[in-house]
Design a protein around this nucleic acid. Structure first.
Length: 348
DNA sequence: AACACGGGGTC
DNA sequence: GACCCAGTGTT
């Protein structure tokens, strides 16, 4: 496998994308970018990265930031436990490592939210340590290169890939080499459709390309079907105010804010009853129609109602807010955007 | 080993 | 609609 090293490094030197976290390479910036990039495309991360670094330029600021502000900076990126773990890790960095990220793979691995991939990425990119950083891109590239039929979802396959990479990391070039492998997977040996073998520096070394069946790799077990959940969403209106509720600290969309909602596809009478259960006195109910939101593992089919309520009652666990402050102050998942769109629009 | 955990781009 | 993304933590 060693023969891929030189062509890959040469290609990367010419073709590395100009990305915000490559402009200035510090351990903190590498770490933040790698966490953001977990299961998330480069294009989606760019804007978040700049804003996040501007607001929280180092571990000290991250360790101290208010949770709502932190989630607001992460709003829309998904997998919100990444943000909480980032802060937990920042506190460890402040208390245990004197405010600097530890320069060892083993210590990086102990930080919350840092697994084998991220520890390897930070170790190699930020500290130049010869550690593999095997992600989905690398697994795809290697499986095509060797026409390997084993399921890349199998942890044993990933361990083997890490062993392979570790064995060929060029001295002093670990960061460039790992990034080159990922960059090739992201821009040339891409998922979704045929790879751009015409632009690949490894085409001549690739078993899948020789056989002309690149798209047969990587082999991956079929995913489980999503489950559908019916939910009724309440847009509760009291005078000019709107009711929001904070989600539980654990589970789906933990700690984010939401429109009050409950299981089932209720009719108007059911929506009125639900508002009463929340301690409110409904005056009027209007259907807002259906909406759908797709998570990775769940599909919400929502039925929405605007329920206007009397001013006397505050309701159970609700926060009444001026919709104009929605965009500024409350970390919201995108799941409710269909019902909130009128309020989130500029000037709305 | 299987599942929970977001959101969006692409074919 | 299906796939899948610079994965990690929990059970």
């Amino acid at each position: 496998m060693e023969e891929i090293v030189e062509p890959l490094l040469g290609w990367y030197a010419e073709n590395a994308r100009d990305l915000p976290w490559r402009r200035e390479v510090t351990p903190y910036r590498v770490w933040i970018s790698e966490i953001m990039l977990q299961q998330t495309r480069v294009e989606a991360v760019k804007g978040y990265f700049a804003r996040f670094i501007g607001a929280l330029p180092g571990p000290a600021e991250l360790a101290a930031v208010d949770e709502r502000e932190l989630l607001k900076l992460w709003e829309g990126l998904g997998y919100y436990s990444r943000a909480r773990n980032l802060q937990k890790a920042a506190r460890v960095i402040m208390e245990t490592y004197g405010g600097e990220l530890p320069a060892s793979h083993e210590e990086l691995l102990t930080l919350p939210g840092v697994g084998p991939y991220t520890a390897g990425a930070v170790a190699s990119i930020a500290f130049g340590l010869p550690e593999p950083a095997v992600d989905g891109n690398v697994l795809r590239v290697l499986s095509r290169l060797t026409a390997d039929n084993s399921d890349i979802a199998d942890p044993a396959v990933k361990r083997a890939a890490e062993r392979t990479v570790r064995g060929i990391i060029p001295a002093g070039r670990a960061g460039a080499f790992n990034q080159a492998l990922m960059e090739l997977g992201a821009t040339v040996c891409a998922p979704n459709g045929p790879p751009a073998c015409g632009r690949c520096p490894l085409a001549g070394l690739c078993a899948a390309h020789a056989a002309g069946n690149e798209t047969a790799y990587p082999v991956k077990a079929a995913k489980k079907a999503r489950r559908v959940e019916e939910r009724t969403v309440l847009l509760l209106v009291r005078d000019e105010l709107l009711a929001l509720r904070r989600r539980p600290a654990k589970g789906l969309l933990a700690g984010l804010w939401e429109l009050p909602n409950l299981p089932g596809a209720l009719d108007g009478a059911g929506a009125v009853e639900a508002a009463r259960t929340l301690g409110l006195a409904p005056l009027r109910v209007e259907p807002l129609g259906p909406a759908k939101h797709i998570f990775t593992h769940i599909e919400w089919h929502m039925t929405g109602y605007r329920v206007t309520v009397e001013e006397a009652q505050a309701g159970e666990g609700l926060e009444w807010i001026d919709p104009r402050g929605l965009r500024e102050d409350y970390p919201l998942p995108s799941a409710f955007s269909a019902y909130l769109a009128p309020y989130l629009a500029p000037g709305g």
